[in-house]
Design a protein around this nucleic acid. Sequence first.
DNA 1: CTGTTAGCGCATTCAG
DNA 2: CTGAATGCGCTAACAG
Lengths: 355, 355
Amino acid sequence: MRPTVHDIAAAAGVSLATVDRVLNRRPGVKAATRARVEAAISDIGYERDMAAANLAKGRVYSFLFILPSGDNSFMRGLEARVREAMQRAAVDRVAISLVTVPPFDPAALAEALDAAEQARPAGVAVVAVDAPEVEAAALRLKDAGVPLVTLVSDLPAHCRSHFAGIDNIAAGRTAGGLMRRFIGPGRGRVAVLAGSMRVIDHRERLEGFRAAMGEAGHEILPVLEAQDDPAEAERLVGALLSQSREISGIYSLGAGNRGLIAALRGQPSFRPRAVIAHELTAHTRLALEAGLIDAVLNQDAGHEVRSAIRVLKARADGVAVIEAQERIRIDIFLKDNLPFAEGEAEAPARSPDAA
Amino acid sequence: MRPTVHDIAAAAGVSLATVDRVLNRRPGVKAATRARVEAAISDIGYERDMAAANLAKGRVYSFLFILPSGDNSFMRGLEARVREAMQRAAVDRVAISLVTVPPFDPAALAEALDAAEQARPAGVAVVAVDAPEVEAAALRLKDAGVPLVTLVSDLPAHCRSHFAGIDNIAAGRTAGGLMRRFIGPGRGRVAVLAGSMRVIDHRERLEGFRAAMGEAGHEILPVLEAQDDPAEAERLVGALLSQSREISGIYSLGAGNRGLIAALRGQPSFRPRAVIAHELTAHTRLALEAGLIDAVLNQDAGHEVRSAIRVLKARADGVAVIEAQERIRIDIFLKDNLPFAEGEAEAPARSPDAA
DNA sequence: CTGTTAGCGCATTCAG
DNA sequence: CTGAATGCGCTAACAG
């Protein structure tokens, strides 16, 4: 059996209460006694049974998720994953609450962060907007001792405990690598469609994409900024396609896939050699299956949410996480390896079989 | 607070012991009483606190992993992941043991399975070889009430509780889709390198690959079977490359990557348009970085091991799993999206930062 | 058939 | 500064 508090108490010649005091770094223990207990702890190789500890204190971890509102498909999918996590959270003694704030609004986000601090949650997960107010609010949370995990969109590393999201430079590079291979030999003209260059994720993807494409000497056209507006995206891409048949590829590095797909559908006579987009949603999945899009890079929102919760819990307990488990992959989906489930939704649970 | 056994006892007008008896489906309760208790349970919406239950019974889940021996890089990586899991298993009240059996040896595997049954573990995870003896042994385990999870390589569904591995047909199809795009327009001749066609994974990959390539009318050469022997693989590929410069692509669908890479290195004057292999190991990673291989399809061994453990635990407890979390992805790695860590190893844990 | 009681590993009053 | 006692939610003898 694993050693328990009793074993340490016996070894150190003290009572359970004293052992508990040094375990939880509480005051009221003479330095010498503390030393004896600590010696016994590391000596015996004691490890606290968190389940029992949590049972005894009736602890529940209260976590807060802050997400952008708006009709972005990916964000709504993310919210759905959070809501699923809320359902099953109770069995792990965690209570998740969820608030949404207007997208791309640093002031609103900073305010939500400050409000969070008042509620003194055990941890906060936030889809960040990198702006000074937000950084300041994040640092206030840090000072208050509340672990902060950025989700999908990051802040500078010193402002948060952990980032649950993908390496966007690598994602852009990956898109570039695929684009090059898909276009094939020869020089091509490639269009880039973006939501807004204000968000760091998008800038990073572009940077990575340029680096990967640049090596091959392709021409990258000026970025089309659709400001997350489907109609605008459709107009921009439509105009591009009708003006010129010389487009070899299109890289959609952020929001705006609905417009892109509509534009592609609107010009059935011409198809670029390669169309690559981000985020597997109902729309991009359909486009992939229809052959309008050739590849979709994806970050698994469900994984990101579960990872954020695990990391927050680990931080709250002061224990380490399994790094490999928390690394969010850059998924590449072709029409050949689409997951079975509809859209990005989690599949319904099968009834567990025998045993 | 969540309802507890006390609440049910009070509501049903019985004692804790009786509640416990019906909760654990133990005999010795009058049908009428049982019904009253069950009514109270579903009425109040009671859910058992597994942590407390496990604490009370001092339960430890004992799981057994059965892996093939031999020097296959992927399998040795898998074993490393299992050993890592063994280390951190204690904190979750699980004890993992590990045995290896000669690869591709149905008799040895069946024997190991039967031995496992004697040890009465709470669950078994096995890299299966699909053969009658093995199926029979698996069914014996099932009859004994021991949950069985197949790992990487599957058995027919009725023989096991769950499969922790990828959809190999989809993997082959994905390789085919990439190959087509990488080769570009026009008809190409494509070679396929396999370990042995005896294992179902490999047959399935080939099937998927053929389906995806066939659509495009490429010529697929007769499969080169290297029987997992690096020297043989090198010889076969080397001969092919020197005989003909007409090879547009090579798909290595199983073991034998070391030989493939050596052969490629041995013919620097000629490179097929596309080389696609399976499993990210130290060898394939290097070859990817060097541009000898264009894409590697991978299954995350760490994920598979963690998933197997979660599923086994859920089966032992009779609870459902989060399906999406247990779906093993077909990872596609280009040199652009290689994970940071060296080889397939898990990265060393970072010290947790503030909070 | 049913109830009482002690205890799992730990945290927390409340005395001393 | 230190210790004894009680309880978290649940299980398991052991009595009735």
